[in-house]
Design a protein around this nucleic acid. Sequence first.
DNA 1: ATGGTTGTTATACAA
Length: 262
Amino acid sequence: MKIASWNVNSLNVRLPQLQQWLADFAPDVVGLQETKLEDHRFPEDALLEAGYRSVFHGQKTYNGVALLARHPIAAVQSGIPDFADPQARAIAATVNGVRIVNLYVVNGQDLGTDKYDYKLRWLDAVHGWLAEELKAHPHLVVLGDFNIAPDDRDVPDAAVWNDDHILTSSAERSAYQRLLALGLHDGLRLKHDDAALFSWWDYRQAAFRRNLGLRIDLTLVSDALKAQVQAVGIDKTPRSWERPSDHAPAWVELRGQAQLLQ
DNA sequence: ATGGTTGTTATACAA
């Protein structure tokens, strides 16, 4: 069972690339972020033609998340329960007995800004939510654009991306570690120790060509799923296409779910 | 990073 996360930076612009990538990579489940579409504009029919059901939680211009799956999608939760949020940044559902939580974590702009405070409050709400999700669903995958680079392997220059920098600050990384402490594991680090396995590259300054990126798109798996992780990676292919998203898909493959996929 | 690029019911703002 291949489960992926992709920040498409406008599904309206990226739909042809998403269709191509679904055909090439054939994931079973995909969490999308930054769809930037109101729900009535979501391309549900085009994705059905590609073989994927979808559930979505969007808004005009900004944010927007969705889950796509080749198989039935159950128990959909849009937004963080009991957390009033005008921004569409979270959606969860169950597919083949695996609970999937898809997050578009707040960027936070800069330390000391209102957006940074919102990011930390938002992550605190996610912490409470995931604690409940884990109780109800031990087989949990949490994926998305975390807008946090977990450690120094995940940045090109740790002197620049330091404790006082957005996406790597100590408060952000502590909030991320608090999520892991619930009983979650960074899927990629179960299989790879390498530095510079990035998932996002700025559009500016030829950052992709120079591999000046960050690893901020993550696939976390719960304790109960850890032994089922077969492979994990980041598919840089779509980032090399014409007019790409600035993010590449991050994916995790679980074994032992194949019989459920029939 | 003071810039740079991309997206949006844009022409500032978010990333």
